[in-house]
Design a protein around this nucleic acid. Structure first.
Lengths: 243, 243
DNA sequence: AAGCGGGATACTGTATACAGTTTTGATCGG
DNA sequence: CCGATCAAAACTGTATACAGTATCCCGCTT
């Protein structure tokens, strides 16, 4: 009963009115827009305009923004509010380093625990993937990528790792969306290689491939390639380098 | 007696009244209590009681709880509110795996970028640390540990990595607080080894030592030592809360 | 005695209100 | 024309209000 007078908030799309955690719904909506590029990096996300547009009060929006901030795709500054995260080259490098490492761990874990049922799923993904090429529709490619990652995460079975990697993927996704198109084929070949290593149970290889895959996608040199600092070479104390 | 005939917000310690981001202050307060064990794992953290106790309204408390939830030391369930995170053995294992990997990366990065000024700082920490033993006051030990970690993070200079590692440290801290006492000396020796490797610029070694250090502290076999694909259960979905 | 309503209670989710701070914009002086 | 100044507008931070849900306790039924 008591059908509330709908005066307060009745306009706009009424994304509210759902009986689920509103903040999450709102977060999903905003995340989607960010990842789709409808909100540009650096753009400010004021609470009130958003709340009006989505037809909810400021509180769920505020909470959603904090959520996204925890995911790293939004930045909240003390008395300035939220804006879409935009990463300086330095930070991109940082993100990639960490993500490469964790994707490596993920693949290694997956390979270690390979069980028959899961392997079957992987085989299927490999098969489907081989049909992908540069002209494949973007959404199909993305769907396949998503399946690849999900399957690997499922097998690795480390929820802590999963959530961190996912966050890193979102953050880098903002950046590499462009290049990914051109790398479609290599991309898939690399995925394939990783899957094969996992299927074979070769943890070491799977890890290395996954790590390198991230660096490749970022078109960035791997950690090992970058630093000649401590190379093979008899240990001659700490070598300061003037260069 | 639904009457709250008290002046709006006048009692309690008045942690508010600061002109800084209240939610952060509150988060700090709660975090401290959790890490100090004043809130036990699993204990529920209702918003209203907390807000009364801290002398602020529910909103900053709510926000603080979400913050802590992002850090992983608090869990927020849809219509049940927040409670102190409590990890099942399975998840502890997961946390350790990830943390070990990231601490390894951190040490490797630090070793790679070793610059003279920073190295001097490390030398000092090594020197101070050598005076530590089982009877050293806990706070001193903790301070030294903190310095160790901070210095390493500073040198590694990867802010993304830093924040993730820090979160993982907090989460595991809840668990290993106990054992750490007994391991004081080994602990320090291991730190020392890591620092020496970093000072020498031996990235490979520093990484391995740091990774192993985490597994040791957790008294858990390293990834490599675990029997590959030994025990495997069909991946139970999620642990439902019964009762 | 043990399970079953039924309601009081305690909290969470969301909305609204208001004070205090940035940000913006426009006016005035150089 | 450009820069400084000040006030209005736009937002954030925090408080309070209220509806809707989980919880818990207690008496009732079998």
């Amino acid at each position: 009963m008591a059908n509330r007078s709908r005066s307060p908030r009745a306009r706009a799309v009424k994304l509210g009115a759902r009986h689920s955690p509103l903040a999450q719904v709102v977060a999903g909506e905003i995340r989607e827009r960010i990842l789709a590029g409808r909100f540009a990096p650096g753009e400010r996300l004021a609470e009130e305009p958003l709340s009006e547009e989505l037809g909810v009060s400021r509180m769920p929006v505020r909470e959603a923004l904090r959520l996204l901030s925890a995911e790293g795709i939004v930045v909240v500054e003390p008395r300035r509010g939220a804006s879409v995260a935009s990463y300086a080259p330095q930070q991109v490098q940082e993100l990639v380093e960490v993500r490469a490492t964790l994707e490596g761990l993920n693949a290694r874990l997956a390979a270690r625990r390979h069980d028959p049922a899961q392997v079957a799923k992987l085989e299927k993904i490999v098969a489907d993937g081989s049909r992908i090429n540069e002209r494949t529709e973007l959404s199909v490619i993305q769907a396949n990528n998503a399946r690849f990652h999900e399957a690997l995460e499922d097998i690795a079975a480390n929820s802590v790792l999963s959530s961190m990697v996912r966050s890193l993927r979102d953050r880098t996704a903002i950046l590499f969306a462009r290049q990914s198109r051109a790398r479609t084929r290599e991309n898939w070949h690399e995925h394939e290689g990783i899957l094969r290593a996992v299927i074979a149970g070769d943890a070491e290889l799977a890890g290395i491939l996954a790590t390198r895959h991230v660096y490749n996608a970022a078109q960035m040199p791997t950690l090992a390639e970058v630093a000649p600092a401590a190379q093979r070479e008899p240990r001659t104390k700490a070598r300061q380098r003037a260069a």
